[in-house]
Design a protein around this nucleic acid. Structure first.
Length: 552
RNA sequence: GCCCUUGUAGCUCAGUGGAUAGAGCAACAGUUUCCUAAACUGUAGGUCGGCGGUUCGAGUCUGCCCGAGGGCACCA
């Protein structure tokens, strides 16, 4: 709605002879008695105009000229707020727009002609996905969906590493478990992967090859088997959640020489060296972050000559620029919070426009079962496996619970609540609203041969005027703004909250207004309002990646 | 010790420097001759962790203190 109000306010300021640098802000007051929308522009300008904000607001009002039948009234209130009330006609006309746009309602043009990359999950294949990773996965997936609604061409990328020390340890862990199956007595080191899944992989190998591999010192077979198995498991889990990736970027490619005969990692060292940010001491190569005010330099090349994780990270991000993405979104968990400032610093030094990069960090998840909070543990048991959670509460609850709180909040996943078949459970409440509308429309088809796709009666919506109808219509009109806000803040939680309030408004409308029992025109209008509500619920669900059940 | 996130109603959480701090759930009291009561309406519930500072105005910005989670490797 900013696009609607802003130009009018801009003109009014001009007409009233007020010049200001301040950006126009439009907000929805928490209380309807302060209008449908309001602006604080008079308060913002009061100081530089050296005028009382209330007087300034009063002076502005005569110049606020909106198209006919849009804004019903304008009031000055409080310290100098200007409050706008929309006309019911305007609201109902926008409901017609919802019906007209259908699946496209809420789409925008912000990203048309632009490309975006969203990197998420990015777990190395050293174990099955944990609940914590799941939150980031769903968050990333929703952000990618949001970008697509605005016309961005989105690449969903998974960055992983199947080389290096962790993978060696993984292979060794599997080999040791295999040897145990061959009745060898040995000590399993605490530094190795303890998970039950290691035994499973070893058993599969044992079942297939018996003890024929017992004498082999060759690790790579065990490593490769483990990697293949775990990567499959990860991808299967993601698939269950409806999370897909377009590209898998292997960190290892950054170590290999390209056409120019040089590895991407080496090019980063050279480029940083040229800028004077490389130093060699203690046998290692360092990124001189002390020059940037940090306490310590950071190792790029270890004394063994191998890159530390930081170097390929920088090189990897450079590829995102080289691949010419207009927007670069990185989604990762709080455990990687210290990683990105160094990467950004390096990119800045090398002259890349880091304003294109957006970072979404999600805090961790604790699960509550029977009122008891379990802390996530990667070591023993499989209580923190994402697959187990999905088995337990289902895909929709898993997805929705992960994003129904702000990403910065330390999420408390109440497993009991997620399984409840009642209003307490937000998943259920949202589903029910949708199913209820579907059921209503099935009946309307039977009793009145109502066709939701027939547009000849759309104008009847303008006959609706009761508070619950107007409020519902108003909420529908708000949807495109909610999409934009969710994207701007990288926060799909805003969408969840919105859809919940939309469901609530629908239930109230349904309760207060008889639909099929109403006289013909009103009945049709109310059915159309219901169709529009269902449309917006569906559009929102599809961004969140939850299903839209037709009956329950 | 340092860094990041966080502390708002009994619980889970919103809150973009602005109006009397909001929502959901739980609690309590009501609503079905009627399209899904798997719902709706109403009531009650607060020292915004604490103490200062910035300004016309602070839950929001800032300083310190306290609590919670995470991170501080030549691991990724």
């Amino acid at each position: 709605m900013l696009e609607f109000f802003s130009p009018v306010i801009q003109k009014a300021l001009l007409a009233a002879g007020i010049t200001t640098e301040k950006a126009i802000q439009i907000e929805q007051p928490s209380d309807k008695k302060f209008g449908d929308f309001s602006t604080n522009i008079a308060l913002l300008c009061a100081k530089e105009c050296r005028k009382n904000p209330r007087e300034l607001a009063q002076a502005l009002v005569p110049y606020l000229l909106f198209p006919p039948d849009t804004v019903a009234s304008i009031e000055v209130a409080g310290a100098g707020f200007i409050n706008f009330y929309l006309s019911p006609l305007f609201i109902m006309r926008s409901v017609e727009q919802v019906l007209f746009d259908g699946d496209h309602y809420g789409k925008g043009v912000l990203g048309i002609g632009k490309s975006a990359i969203v990197e998420y999950v990015s777990a190395n294949p050293t174990g099955p996905l944990t609940i914590g990773r799941g939150r980031g996965g769903v968050l990333g997936d929703c952000i990618a969906n949001l970008l697509e609604t605005q016309g961005y061409k989105v690449t969903r990328e998974y960055y992983f590493n199947n080389a290096g020390r962790q993978m060696q340890i993984l292979g060794e862990s599997v080999r040791l478990r295999y040897l145990e199956l061959c009745k060898q007595v040995l000590e399993f080191p605490t530094t190795h992967y303890q998970g039950e899944y290691i035994r499973d992989i070893a058993e599969t190998i044992y079942a297939q090859y018996g003890e024929t591999l017992e004498k082999s010192d060759e690790l790579s077979f065990f490593k490769t088997s483990a990697e293949t198995s775990l990567f499959n498991s990860i991808r299967q889990t993601l698939q269950r959640l409806g999370i897909r990736h377009d590209t898998f970027f292997n960190e290892h490619t950054l170590y290999l020489a390209d056409e120019s005969g040089m590895a991407a990692n080496q090019r980063v060292i050279d480029a940083l060296h040229e800028k004077g940010f490389i130093d060699n001491y203690d046998g290692a190569t360092w990124f001189r972050t002390t020059k940037l005010g940090q306490e310590k330099d950071k190792v790029l090349l270890k004394s063994s000559g191998e890159p530390s994780y930081r170097l390929p990270d920088i090189a990897y991000h450079i590829t995102k620029f080289e691949r010419r993405f207009d927007m670069i979104v990185n989604v990762f968990g709080a455990d990687h919070i210290d990683e990105y400032p160094d990467v950004l610093e390096a990119l800045n030094i090398l002259g890349y426009d880091t304003a294109r990069i957006k970072i979404a960090i999600n805090q961790f998840v604790t699960t509550t079962v029977d009122g008891k909070t379990l802390k996530m543990s990667t070591r023993k048991g499989n209580a923190d496996l994402l697959d187990d959670l999905i088995d337990d509460v289902g895909v929709d609850a898993t997805r929705l619970f992960f994003i129904m709180r702000g990403k910065d909040s330390h999420l408390n996943f109440d497993v009991e609540l997620a399984k409840k078949q009642s209003k307490e459970n937000p998943v259920f409440y949202l589903h029910y609203a949708h199913a209820r509308i579907c059921s209503l429309l099935r009946l309307a088809l039977q009793e009145r041969a109502f066709d939701p796709h027939n547009s000849v009666h759309h104008h009847l919506l303008r006959k609706l005027s009761s508070p619950s109808e107007i409020q519902l219509g108003f909420a529908l009109l708000d949807y495109p703004d909610v999409v934009k806000t969710s994207l701007r803040l990288l926060e799909p939680q805003k969408m969840v909250e919105y859809l919940h309030s939309l469901a609530e408004l629908f239930h109230r409308f349904y309760q207060e207004c008889p639909i099929l029992k109403a006289e013909t025109d009103i009945c049709t209008a109310r059915l159309l309002l219901s169709v529009a509500t269902r449309q917006v619920l569906r559009n929102g669900f599809s961004i969140l990646g939850v299903s839209a059940p037709e009956s329950m």
